[in-house]
């Protein structure tokens, strides 16, 4: 007799482990490294984040003269948030970043 049969029959009666994703969401844990956001008020324009970013995702925005993160390159390593002296950059729990609008793919 196949060994897995009891397990399979038991699974039919159990609650599935998967969730219907877009309708049911599983909250990421505390400390999750999602989209980095910049608090422009706190930024003192020391550009440490630009030097720390391993893949040059951060540039200086022309309009605001503050750092702007291009999420197309960001690897969500969190180095910028770690290095910022005023804690102006923070990693959020946001992870659904696919978009058709290129302006949305920036964190400013």
């Amino acid at each position: 007799m196949p060994r897995i049969l009891p397990q399979v029959l038991k699974n039919v009666l159990r609650k599935p482990v998967t969730v219907k994703y877009p309708y049911v969401r599983v909250e990421p844990p505390e400390g999750y490294r999602g989209r980095p956001v910049i608090d422009k008020e706190k930024c003192i324009r020391c550009w440490l984040c630009i030097r720390a970013c391993p893949d040059r995702a951060i540039s200086v925005s022309k309009e605001t003269k503050k750092p702007s993160i291009w999420l197309g390159r960001c690897t969500f390593c969190g180095e910028c948030a770690e290095v910022c002296p005023t804690r102006a950059i923070a990693m959020t729990k946001e992870f659904e970043l696919a978009t058709y609008d290129i302006q949305q793919a920036k964190s400013e």
Binding site: L9, N11, V12, P16
Partner: peptide, 11 residues
């Protein structure tokens, strides 16, 4: 559907 449940997912 039943296959899904047997594999412990929603299906």
């Amino acid at each position: 559907k039943v296959t899904g449940h047997m594999q412990h997912r929603i299906g």
